[in-house]
Simulated assay, not measured.
Amino acid sequence: MQQEILPALKKIDFLANLSDERLESLAAKAKSIKFPKKAVIITEKDETGSLYIILSGKVRVFSSDEKGKEITLLIQEAGTYFGELALLSDQTRSASVATLEKTVCGVISKEDFIHWLTLHPDVAINMLGTLSEKIRYLTEKVKQLALSNVYERTVKLLYEMAQKEGDVYVIHNKPSQQELANMVGSSREMINKIMHDLTKGSYIAIEDKMLKIQRTLPASW
């Protein structure tokens, strides 16, 4: 397990500059847990406090209301982590996390992490910088929801997910329309209309699980 978790810990921004010796002592506290596709790892308002490092697979971080309406805050893949906010406070979980495919996580309990952190207090300063960046990201997302319309948010998201290949932008593992709707805070029906019009206008092309942005997407719809 330590051989799997050590490279993953090195990818975590607030741990990246630590020596192998210091990271090995943290890796020794991790447990490997396998989750099937569509499993809920964390539920919003849970009182759990572990740190999760994704070793393989993909998860969705989301929030929901009493009526079950969801908005996706983040999609995370191998080499990333979640649950760090609960390490530094006694507050309940701020969001839910569910797997989008089979996922393996290295899990470090809050108690073990805090004990390790007391031995390496300089890491706390790095964590504060990382958390401030996450707050900025979520603040920008809230700003988009408040000030941009569904089409503008959809276009921004497509470009964020795409990689440039030659003269086109490509999303190799495109999300479903419902997943897109959850990410931009809209209905699947609205996303269906937008994607239909973009396809009809030859702005995008969809082939199996791949989406190509062939022309610059219009600024407005």
Rank of each mutant, 00 (worst) to 15 (best):
C105S: 13
T154S: 01
S220D: 00
L158P: 03
Y81D: 13
K193F: 06
D167W: 05
E44R: 10
K58S: 15
K34W: 07
L100T: 12
T118F: 06
E111V: 09
M183N: 01
L138W: 10
V168Y: 13
G106H: 02
M190N: 01
H115N: 11
Y169P: 07
A78K: 11
T154E: 00
V184L: 03
Q214G: 06
N173I: 09
M161Y: 09
A181Y: 08
L128C: 07
V61E: 14
A39E: 11
I135D: 14
Y52N: 03
V150H: 01
N126T: 08
N149Y: 02
S64Q: 15
Q76S: 14
L138K: 13
I54G: 04
L18W: 12
G57M: 03
V97D: 10
K58M: 10
V184W: 03
V170Q: 13
L211C: 06
K156H: 06
T130G: 15
Y151P: 04
L157I: 10
S96F: 05
L180R: 06
P36K: 07
W221A: 01
E207G: 05
K58F: 05
A27S: 13
H120I: 08
K156S: 02
P218H: 09
M210R: 13
E21Y: 15
I33W: 05
A219P: 01
E207D: 13
A8T: 12
K141C: 09
D197S: 15
L138A: 13
I5M: 12
E44H: 06
D20Y: 12
L85A: 14
G57W: 02
L145Y: 01
Q144L: 01
V155F: 00
I54H: 04
N149P: 01
Y52E: 03
A78Q: 10
G166A: 09
S109V: 02
I33Y: 06
G68P: 00
E189D: 10
T80I: 01
A95N: 11
Y169H: 12
E101L: 10
L158K: 03
D112W: 04
E207M: 05
D65S: 10
K29N: 14
N182S: 07
L9Q: 06
A27N: 06
D13I: 13
T103M: 08
V104N: 12
S148P: 00
Y81I: 07
G166N: 14
E207T: 10
F14N: 03
L26E: 01
V123K: 04
A162F: 08
F35E: 00
S109H: 00
V150T: 12
L55G: 09
A124F: 11
D122E: 09
P7S: 15
M127H: 07
L23W: 03
Q3T: 15
K45R: 11
G49R: 07
K67I: 03
L128E: 10
G68L: 05
D112C: 04
